[in-house]
């Protein structure tokens, strides 16, 4: 499915550019996007190193393990394939907490660490495990309590009440997250 969407976006983009007599746009966009990829990765490098360094400290000190043990049975219910004391639970929980607090910068390193731990328990290393997909589903739809960026945008645009959308945002995310969990559950059952 990803292959098809990727191809679709690429080809229709080029065709539309050609038809609208603006074929130069394709070259420019492609090169710019490639550059942006490097910029994003370099930007991630710093924060990633910082948080993975701190993570290693927490791991060696036994904090991650205690966090995993403390993790509520709810989280465990969502990941039936994982062992009870799987080391993946620690970073999964940290990632979700960071997402909830809107700390996107910290969330990505924890998320990538969680993926590494999940990969260790994955019998087919080139194929996504069910636990990984569940984790991604939680991640892309995770509740943010304070949508800080958009509040700032509203403030700048002269809103009379920039924070009034917090309630509606939490409601919409909760719906998206509930759907993600349900859809994941259904697809997982069907793929077995």
């Amino acid at each position: 499915m990803v292959n098809l969407i990727w191809l679709f976006m690429l080809l229709t983009g080029i065709v539309v550019s050609a038809l609208s007599g603006n074929i130069n746009q394709v070259t420019e966009s492609a090169l710019k996007a490639a550059e942006l990829g490097i910029e994003v990765a370099i930007g991630l490098m710093g924060v990633m190193s910082l948080w993975l360094g701190i993570m290693r400290l927490a791991e060696k000190a036994g904090l991650i393990q205690s966090l995993a043990k403390l993790s509520s049975p709810v989280i465990r219910l969502l990941f039936p394939d994982l062992k009870k004391d799987s080391p993946a639970f620690g970073p999964i929980i940290l990632n979700l907490c960071a997402n909830i607090l809107g700390l996107g910068n910290a969330a990505t390193p924890f998320g990538l660490k969680a993926m590494q731990e999940l990969q260790k328990e994955n019998p087919y290393p080139d194929t996504a495990s069910s636990a990984m997909i569940t984790f991604l589903a939680l991640n892309t739809s995770c509740i943010t309590i304070i949508p800080a960026t958009i509040i700032a945008v509203r403030m700048k645009a002269g809103s009379s009440n920039p924070t009034e959308i917090i309630g509606t945002t939490i409601f919409a995310t909760a719906c998206a997250m509930g759907t993600a969990i349900t859809a994941d559950f259904i697809f997982r059952k069907r793929s077995k």
């Binding site: 499915m1 990803v2 990969q119 990984m132 991604l136 589903a137 759907t179 993600a180 859809a183």
Partner: peptide
């Protein structure tokens, strides 16, 4: 290094639509 995503994208997009 995961190359086969299985139903991951479907789940993500269904959740986006619901959002």
């Amino acid at each position: 290094g995961i190359k086969k995503h299985r139903y991951a994208l479907k789940v993500g997009l269904v959740a986006d639509a619901m959002g």
